[in-house]
Amino acid sequence: RKEMTAACTPRRRIINLTSVLSLQEEINEQGHEVLREMLHNHSFVGCVNPQWALAQHQTKLYLLNTTKLSEELFYQILIYDFANFGVLRLSEPAPLFDLAMLALDSPESGWTEEDGPKEGLAEYIVEFLKKKAEMLADYFSLEIDEEGNLIGLPLLIDNYVPPLEGLPIFILRLATEVNWDEEKECFESLSKECAMFYSIRKQYISEESTLSGQQSEVPGSIPNSWKWTVEHIVYKALRSHILPPKHFTEDGNILQLANLPDLYKVFERC
């Protein structure tokens, strides 16, 4: 597991931080080997919608929660590849102030007048994250320049770009939802926020969305749709870069829909 690298990086740093090793061990302890084997050997059937997909393993048909699986995938990559990410360069710098204002204007932020003026909160978020810029760049390849612009994001899987519609809320939550006081809790909560931002979430995906850094293989055609990215990038990574937690067998994120021999018997009677 320590050699797990989802995106190509030129050289690998050895990380011996106790906090990170502890988080890696927790993933191992909570892992479910049968689910790992199923995901490793599954045959992708198709997307139901951005949140759900169908896959077959041996004779069984499964309904998989793409949102939760991708979130767990990105969390584990962030923990196992800690401080070893490439950088996704933004085509132009994104001012943190503008991103924070967009987030505060969104109902998702939960902002009320009692929280104070949005401009003041946005300025605080910019200054707060600028103070964390060195650590964010060093460990997470999340790059913020001296003017308070976001200029780079971590490359977690080759050819995958997170849904940038979720970027404003991500920046807001970096400042408000991460435990910045304790090292282990900081790395864990920061990785979880980043994983949620990178995950496939239906509120940020339309039929026209593209999450891939590449064009489709047909010359002159439109960019790959999110469905292509889910199948050929995300579920491909799920084959080798995730140890599913045991609770996925109990919380409805992986559901067995049918045993195909039983279905064949039904059709034979028709």
Rank of each mutant, 00 (worst) to 15 (best):
P244F: 14
T112P: 15
L35Q: 10
E25F: 14
G252V: 11
V34A: 07
L21N: 02
S191F: 01
E25A: 10
N253Y: 04
P261Y: 14
S189C: 04
T112S: 05
E127S: 02
K2G: 12
Q214F: 05
I14W: 14
P117Y: 15
P117F: 15
L96V: 13
R1C: 13
A83E: 11
T5G: 12
Y235C: 11
G86S: 04
S221M: 11
E113Q: 04
V87P: 03
R89H: 08
K118I: 15
E119N: 07
N84S: 08
T229Y: 09
I169T: 11
I125R: 01
A55G: 06
P163H: 07
F85A: 10
A7N: 10
A103L: 00
E185N: 04
N224T: 09
A7T: 09
N84K: 06
N41Q: 06
K130E: 15
E25S: 14
E217V: 05
F267L: 08
E92H: 06
S191H: 02
I144N: 01
E268K: 12
L129T: 03
E119P: 03
D98V: 08
R89K: 04
L153C: 03
L238F: 07
G220L: 13
P154T: 00
E143S: 06
E3Q: 11
L69R: 00
Q215D: 11
N149G: 13
G213A: 07
E217G: 08
I15C: 13
S141Q: 12
R12P: 10
Y160Q: 00
P107D: 12
K227C: 07
F197L: 14
F97W: 02
L129K: 01
L96C: 03
L104Y: 01
V230M: 07
P10M: 12
L243R: 07
I200L: 06
I205P: 09
V87N: 06
S206K: 07
L164N: 03
N259K: 01
R173C: 15
L260R: 05
E127N: 02
L136Q: 00
F44M: 10
E108L: 05
K130P: 02
E165R: 04
S216C: 07
T66M: 15
E268D: 11
T249Q: 05
F44C: 04
K246S: 11
I171Q: 00
K184W: 13
S43R: 08
Q215G: 10
K130R: 08
G86V: 13
L88A: 07
G110D: 01
Q51E: 10
V20G: 15
E123N: 02
N179P: 02
P163L: 05
L167D: 00
E193G: 02
L155F: 07
D181L: 08
L238P: 00
D262I: 13
L260Y: 06
Q256L: 11
L142R: 01
T176A: 04
L54F: 03
T66N: 11
E29G: 05
V126M: 06
F85T: 13
V218N: 05
E113R: 11
A237P: 02
A94W: 10
N259D: 07
I200A: 11
L129I: 13
C270D: 14
E217Y: 13
E29Q: 11
H32D: 05
L142D: 00
V266L: 15
S106G: 08
V87T: 05
L64W: 11
D251F: 13
I14D: 09
L153M: 05
A103W: 15
L21E: 05
S19I: 15
F248G: 12
E177N: 14
T176I: 06
C47E: 06
L88V: 10
H247Y: 09
I14K: 06
Y124Q: 01
A53H: 02
V230P: 02
E146F: 12
D262H: 13
V266A: 15
G213H: 07
R89W: 15
F82I: 01
P154K: 00
P245S: 13
F197M: 10
E146P: 08
I15Q: 09
L39T: 12
G116C: 15
D98W: 15
F140Y: 05
V234G: 01
D145C: 08
L69D: 00
F248T: 10
Y80L: 02
L136F: 08
G152A: 03
V218W: 12
N28F: 14
F97P: 01
A94M: 04
E183P: 02
I79V: 07
H241F: 08
S240A: 07
E92D: 05
V87C: 10
V230F: 03
V126S: 03
K227A: 07
E123G: 04
Y75H: 13
A6S: 12
D115M: 15
K246R: 11
G148S: 04
P10L: 12
R12V: 10
Y75M: 10
S206T: 06
A122P: 01
G86F: 13
R12Q: 12
N49C: 07
S106H: 08
I27G: 15
V230C: 04
P93A: 06
F187E: 02
L243N: 06
Y75C: 12
A7M: 12
L142F: 12
H32V: 08
S212H: 08
E147Q: 06
F267E: 01
T5H: 13
D115A: 09
K60G: 12
Q30Y: 12
T229L: 10
R11F: 14
L136W: 01
E3G: 04
R1F: 14
I157A: 13
W52F: 06
H241C: 11
V230E: 05
S206Y: 09
L142P: 01
D251W: 15
C270Q: 15
D145P: 01
Q51I: 13
L39S: 03
E37C: 12
S221F: 12
K132P: 01
F140M: 09
K130Y: 15
Y204C: 08
V45Q: 05
N16T: 07
S206G: 09
